[in-house]
Design a protein around this nucleic acid. Structure first.
Length: 152
DNA sequence: GCCAACGTTGGC
DNA sequence: GCCAACGTTGGC
């Protein structure tokens, strides 16, 4: 069992959107960063637990939990010229970008705001709180996972 | 809306 | 292979 954190702008796709999808499941498309791509393509496994993080919003923070329901497969939005995430360099025969499917698990009892995560000594070293971090998919250790759940 | 941090692109 | 220019992310 592995743990992850994935960011989304709630104006684009929120945890409420995920909860409202058929089977409470949606594919996580549009990631165009190689580090994040590699984790989705190579490392994430069905059943892995994911913190759902809202970025670029009034109160950025962890809002809930999802789980991986399908392992990495090609991100088809890269093939569609009409899609905002279109990438002409991604070929269906040699896809450059990958995604996973996530299934909604639950909301946290409250949003754990970013400043609180940053101020927490137990979370020092977590990728999320490192300066200038822009990764949209990152690993979370089991210790960090458990600790964050004590904060809700 | 501003802007720091960072990744990518492309000229050389 | 270097690095300046540029675009994007995302907190504030």
């Amino acid at each position: 069992m592995q743990y992850w954190l994935m960011k989304s702008e709630p104006d684009e796709f929120s945890i409420d959107d995920l909860q409202g999808r058929p089977k409470q499941t949606e594919h996580w498309d549009g990631v165009r960063n190689y580090q994040a791509r590699n984790m989705m393509r190579d490392e994430m496994r069905v059943g892995d637990q994911v913190f759902f993080y809202h970025s670029n919003t009034k109160v950025p923070g962890i809002v809930g939990i999802a789980e991986v329901s399908r392992e990495g497969y090609p991100d088809h939005t890269a093939f569609d010229p009409n899609d905002p995430h279109y990438d002409p360099k991604s070929d269906p025969d040699a896809p450059r970008w990958f995604m996973v499917d996530l299934r909604y698990v639950r909301h946290l009892k409250r949003t754990i705001p970013l400043p609180e995560l940053k101020a927490d000594p137990a979370l020092e070293g977590m990728a999320l709180v490192r300066r200038g971090n822009r990764l949209s998919v990152m690993p979370v250790t089991e210790e960090q996972w458990r600790h964050i759940l004590t904060l809700e």
